[in-house]
Amino acid sequence: MTMATDSSTPNSDFQFPPLYNFPPFFTLQPVLATRKSQLQSWSSLIQSYCRHHRLWTLTLVDALETPLFNNTKLSRRLSLRDARAIIDWMTTPEGDSRAEWIPTTGKKPSRSDEYSEAGKCWIYWKRPEEWASALEEWVDRTGQKGTVLTLYEITEGDATRREEFWGMDSTLLAKSLAVCVKRGKAQVFGAEGSEGVKFF
């Protein structure tokens, strides 16, 4: 699991969008039309930032200190409340379901739980369905239909080092494979911890 605080691989500097340098961008606008536009801008900023840094999840409290939400040059930062509102919006269908709160405990979280707990969320710069398609496409491209692949092989193997899903969080991978299974394109078997998958 890659923590948001890691931001360990600054292979090249992330190019922030122009709006990132606009001070009011860090205040959530109350007027509906403006707010919607602002949320969209934030959403795409977060997605591209996470894609750049290969982040699969964000922990809000920690992420607030990262350049994503904290523009040190302007000395403007997004407040925790506003950041939550943005992620909330990203989880809705209107926000294209680009995020999902991760429940801390096994039970279904109520809304208040989400706020009180760690506030950790998936950032889907690709949604599980999209990942599923990407995996299928990769299997198809590399001619591995019918072969059994381990999950470790997919996320950590040398063969996939150039693929986007390299280093993917295992939970997310499981989710994506589940989509493939549902589509009837793959089959997952094996015991917990050493699962394998077969595409066909």
Binding site: P17, F22, P24, T34, S37, Q38, L45, S48
Partner: peptide, 12 residues
């Protein structure tokens, strides 16, 4: 209001 006027942030 530049937020509305320039909403397209290049992705990637």
């Amino acid at each position: 209001n530049w937020i509305v006027k320039d909403p397209v942030v290049h992705s990637g």
